[in-house]
Design a binder for these strands. Structure first.
Lengths: 345, 345
DNA sequence: GTGAAAGCGCTAACAT
DNA sequence: ATGTTAGCGCTTTCAC
């Protein structure tokens, strides 16, 4: 019976005190200790104090596994980040963490490494942990794969405006509006030849928004898109292609900040002055855009609002698992810096 | 008894199947199901197959909380990242995650937001989750606060070469060697006036290493250090100070890549060509250094080795909680790119 | 107000 | 090889 003081090796080892220890030390039952520790006012002042003091003296920390098992919920939100190295997502993850904590939940963050298998594995592990809800930040998982979650647990996906899967909520930046912000800014400056360095499947909204905005300004004939992998190198290659030809565009709208940096590097290498001969607009407004020496005009996604939207949506579905799917869109803004100006005449 | 099929609202809701459901469906006892599901070879082939099939048909996923409670371990490693937004740390966190998974552990990542209270809170929550071990990546927590963990659970701290706290292991890059790599590279190119844009308390190793290396090359009289907050803006200000005076240095060794970018920006603004009039060396060798248009020479910390070291150290201490403290140092390397060259004569 | 008893889902002896 | 019996540490009726 006294094995609690002995570790597996037989040597004495401090085992974490349990609520039973606290109750014994305070001379009360476990249930009363449980009540007091959770701040119930059904406990007399005297006993409450003795219990809290005992817990304090023992250095008692409740065992989340035991509590979760008994309560049949973990108070955990799983956050799957497709790519922790992308500044936008790590920022977003931090904001989700903040928002969740304010709602009484804790976040466990997992990295998907932009890989389908790793994402699947991360989700599996979240399910085994019995997280109360799951936030997926720009998952690379194909749409059909989301069906397996339906009804299993509340899931909110960020970065996919419309998911063809019922029962899953989404929160996204209005990329159509974001692209329009970029195009309109450039058009207002006098640009007409505005090219788009686009990204993969996840960023189709930006491309579509770009095309729509161009047409809205009667520039449908000037639409030109170069697809990339959304990386620095991708932006570089795309820009070399665009700037190397006879009639280069006067402005480039890039799918994100990293690829915009690639565009800037290419312009630099080719001796094309920015912004005088080429205006560049990025997307995400990460700290990359803010860097001195970069000062990139960029479409800003309001991380905090997205994060709040994700958490609110999740909480809403925890409260009512059968409610109709929610698809929230948050409005982007434009951070104008030094890489855009009127085109040379 | 049939409440399992009914949610809190009274509506039917799919509750996750338990091992009892699997056992019933397969017509065996729970313990046999448990054994089979964990791949024991003590189970006859026939029953094993029936059990696995039942589990599969039911979509059974073990409950990690229940398992952890019974096994008295969580198979979880807590990873506290002081600043997720710093590319080096998010990269390191991913590597730790990878290494831990190969050892059969899962990682739960928490963000410290560079804040003492948030770090404390994160650790508390890890303790409540009963993580089997804790990795702290460049914590901002003051040294004395680490004492509370001693004996509580295995802890490995990254980024603090020598911790004055017994019972806690450390794994770090050999910053003295890293600084020496930078200085020696610059000295070999012919530089003598090498300034250091230094960081806060966590980076004293780099500063000390810089000073030692300078003295080793008879350049003790040329030692010049400007302290910063390790940010882009900090590097910018420091560089303006250094470059604005009558006798500017011909080279700058910055405490990390971000502040090196600030130095580059300042040089640009002041019309000081890099590398012709100023060589710049960063630290961390993050993707920032690799960016086209930056191509920063930088001291590389081997993320993968550090991560492996952390996990190995943690596993070692899990296996033997009373072993002597381990302090591992991994050797940095130098990634030479385009921001360093011989000084103008 | 307080305590006794049951149970959350699982693993781990201990029987067979 | 398989089943039985106890817990793991906590919350939660339900009596008193």
């Amino acid at each position: 019976l006294n094995e609690r003081a002995t570790g597996p090796t037989g040597r004495p080892r401090r085992n974490a005190p349990t609520i039973t220890d606290v109750a014994q030390r305070a001379g009360v039952s476990r249930s009363l200790a449980s009540l007091a520790l959770r701040g119930s006012d059904l406990v007399s002042a005297g006993k409450r104090e003795r219990i809290l003091r005992a817990a304090d003296e023992l250095g008692y920390r409740p065992n989340a596994m035991a509590r979760g098992l008994a309560e049949r919920r973990s108070r955990l939100i799983g956050v799957l980040v497709s790519d922790l190295r992308n500044a936008f997502f790590s920022e977003l993850a931090e904001q989700v963490d903040l928002a969740a904590r304010q709602a009484g939940y804790r976040c466990v963050i997992a990295a998907g490494h932009r890989d389908t298998d790793q994402e699947t594995e991360a989700v599996r592990s979240f399910v085994e942990s019995r997280v109360d809800a799951l936030a997926m930040l720009s998952p690379v998982l194909p749409e059909q794969r989301f069906a397996q979650f339906t009804g299993q647990l509340p899931v909110t996906v960020e970065g996919r405006e419309r998911l063809g899967v019922p029962g899953i909520d989404t929160v996204s930046t209005d990329d159509t509006a974001g692209a329009a912000l970029a195009v309109e800014h450039l058009v207002a400056l006098g640009h007409r030849d505005i090219a788009h360095v686009s990204g993969g499947d996840a960023a189709t909204g930006r491309r579509a928004g770009y095309e729509t905005a161009m047409r809205a300004h009667g520039l449908g004939g000037n639409v030109e898109t170069v697809a990339t992998d959304e990386s620095d190198a991708g932006g570089y290659e795309a820009a070399r292609k665009l700037l190397g030809r006879g009639d280069p565009p006067t402005a480039v709208f890039a799918v994100n900040d990293v690829s915009a940096l690639g565009v800037l590097a290419a312009a630099d290498d080719l001796g094309v002055p920015v912004p005088d001969a080429l205006s560049v607009v990025g997307y995400d407004d990460t700290y990359l855009a803010e860097l001195r020496g970069v000062a990139l005009t960029s479409v800003a996604q309001p991380c905090d609002l997205i994060a709040q939207g994700i958490v609110e949506t999740l909480l809403g579905r925890i409260g009512d698992p059968d409610r109709a799917p929610v698809h929230r869109l948050v409005a982007p803004t434009l951070s104008i810096r030094s890489t855009t100006t009127a085109p040379a005449r």
